[in-house]
Design a protein around this nucleic acid. Structure first.
Lengths: 333, 333
DNA sequence: TTGTAAGCGTTATCAT
DNA sequence: ATGATAACGCTTACAA
């Protein structure tokens, strides 16, 4: 069954291509009778309109490109969930791609996606390759930066204040009496949001005269495993009193390792996660963590983007609040 | 900075659009001098070739469309991992979309993606809406069905034998003395691969004269939580001796609930997962599960697809093996 | 209600 | 090495 074009349908139906065009788009200007006949024939011929031709003729698509660091993280799945549904209901297509946390990968995404004349582009975070800014003139392409915030977004951003989250977490731990923190996560520079949280932690502990935060980098694809192996790398002679992880899955991996090493949590060592991922809700002892409004970020982001596409001015910077979730993996007092 | 077309670049460079076209594509037929000059100007003008026009002119894209049920499942992230990288290195673009386990969603994916004249389409599973087959004439569009297998694929398939995996798991449990199984997972009909595994389980237990398998359906987005809540729904008066879950995350959720209810695992009740997800590797007591070759499915699938696109005939059906992983959540003897 | 003609931004083909 | 022209499949604008 060969691909058929609008011409084939027109010929088979004995009408002009314009009539076919109108019929398949469902616009006015075709009698009910011919419309039905044309659609019938289109179906038999397995006709599928050529999107490239359409986009070319109308000079503009209805596509929104979305760039995420990875799919191996429930955080981004959560963000996507509300977002894509909203776009679809509004009649937009969205295309997702991943950069594997590389700013070069993000640049490549931009280059690729721009060829398709997207209506809008959504990026993760606010730290990009220099070129990215130049490539995204906000006059032509609405640009949403998600999950992090800045005073000078490319266009507008919706996210949380990671540094502030780090400070809040740090202060909470300081209050509990912790003074010797360690952080286990991606290598510095890879996940800039995590880097900002670490900055906040460092600040909070320094203010309390604590020990310098030790940072341990892990790189396994999987969070459970990198949490586990990261914990192994802790200097036993100079053990931290609390270990913060990039996220809850890593924290769980670390917790498992700690217990295997015979350490009692939280008596011997504290364990702290981030995000309040679903796993924390099924554990008998809740992991101390910070709840992040991921679904909401997706929803607000999508809503603002739609507004922006309709010509409404939206706030350049939307900060959504995080909530500290004290658990049983840090001391009570 | 307005969007500039090839015409603008041509004008600015004082050459014809064909020269620009050749320069930008890096094909022969342009002197080194003009090539450099044109590229220089293209960069200053922020010129990005229009992919729609290109695809239209060359009547064909280099795009591969990928349809997955969900991103909330490490299984599919694993499958994707090797695949997309392979495609990219081979010079193909790939576009991923999710159907949320609905065959209607899959059909919509097909309709949408076909407009862009993809070179190939990748679907999850082998059970599709009737229309899907008609829309994918294998003469025009290479079609790979992933993760499940059938004797009559649309084009070709690479996956595991889910029914057989269920039988193997069932027999193993029967050997351990289990006779009263329950299954906790998606509602029947939603995840057809899981349904096939359940069929296999039923067969194995029936052959051993066991009790009829009880099936409990859960629908929360999150696996940990649905495992937990699913376990709550178990009939306490007629408790199964072993509970099988759709996957390891659900099994972990169920395990947490079991222990909270004061049940001892595996003495009072057995817990079984599926896939051997990474979390199982950090647990002190390994969950009994079935290891599935997800990375390999992605790699073999991608390799075969590339071969197929190069005109090589590939096997219609490739079955990859699963491996039983006995753990400490089922009885030893 | 239907059709004709021009054009969207590129590439293939054939000239020069 | 470079350019002119037609074509890709559709939609917009205008005509009948």
């Amino acid at each position: 069954m060969a691909k058929s074009s609008i011409h084939d349908v027109a010929k088979a139906a004995g009408v002009s291509i314009m009539t076919v065009s109108r019929a398949v788009r469902g616009v006015n200007g075709v009698s009910e009778a011919t419309r039905l006949r044309v659609l019938e024939i289109a179906k038999t011929l397995n006709y599928v309109p050529n999107g490239n031709a359409r986009a070319l003729a109308t000079t503009g698509s209805n596509m929104i490109g979305i760039s995420l660091p990875t799919l191996f993280n429930d955080v981004f799945a959560d963000v996507l969930l509300g977002m894509r549904r909203t776009f679809q209901q509004a009649g937009y297509d969205s295309v997702v791609d991943t950069t594997d946390y590389s700013s070069d990968g993000e640049l490549q995404f931009i280059e690729r996606i721009l060829q398709w004349q997207p209506l809008a582009v959504i990026l993760t975070g606010v730290d990009h390759d220099e070129t990215v800014r130049a490539r995204l003139p906000r006059a032509n392409i609405a640009t949403l930066e998600l999950w992090d915030i800045t005073d000078h977004p490319i266009d507008f951003c919706v996210g949380i204040d990671h540094r502030e989250a780090g400070v809040a977490l740090g202060r909470h731990l300081v209050e509990k009496g912790y003074r010797a923190p360690a952080f286990i996560g991606a290598p510095a520079g890879k996940d800039t949001r995590a880097d900002k949280r670490v900055e906040g932690l460092v600040e909070a502990f320094r203010a309390a005269g604590g020990r310098t935060l030790r940072r341990i980098s892990v790189s396994d694809d999987n969070a459970f495993i990198s949490g586990y192996t990261g914990f192994e790398q802790i200097d036993r002679d100079r053990r931290p009193d609390v270990v913060l992880f990039l996220n809850d899955h890593m924290a769980f991996g670390g917790l498992m390792r700690a217990e295997q090493e015979g350490l009692r949590v939280p008596d011997d060592i504290g364990i702290v996660g981030f995000n309040e991922l679903a796993i924390t809700k099924v554990l008998p002892r809740r992991i101390t963590t910070m709840s992040t409004p991921r679904r909401q970020i997706g929803l607000v982001g999508a809503r603002n983007l739609l507004a922006r596409l309709n010509g409404v001015t939206v706030p350049e910077k939307t900060i959504l609040p995080c909530t500290l979730v004290p658990g049983q993996t840090t001391r009570a007092q």
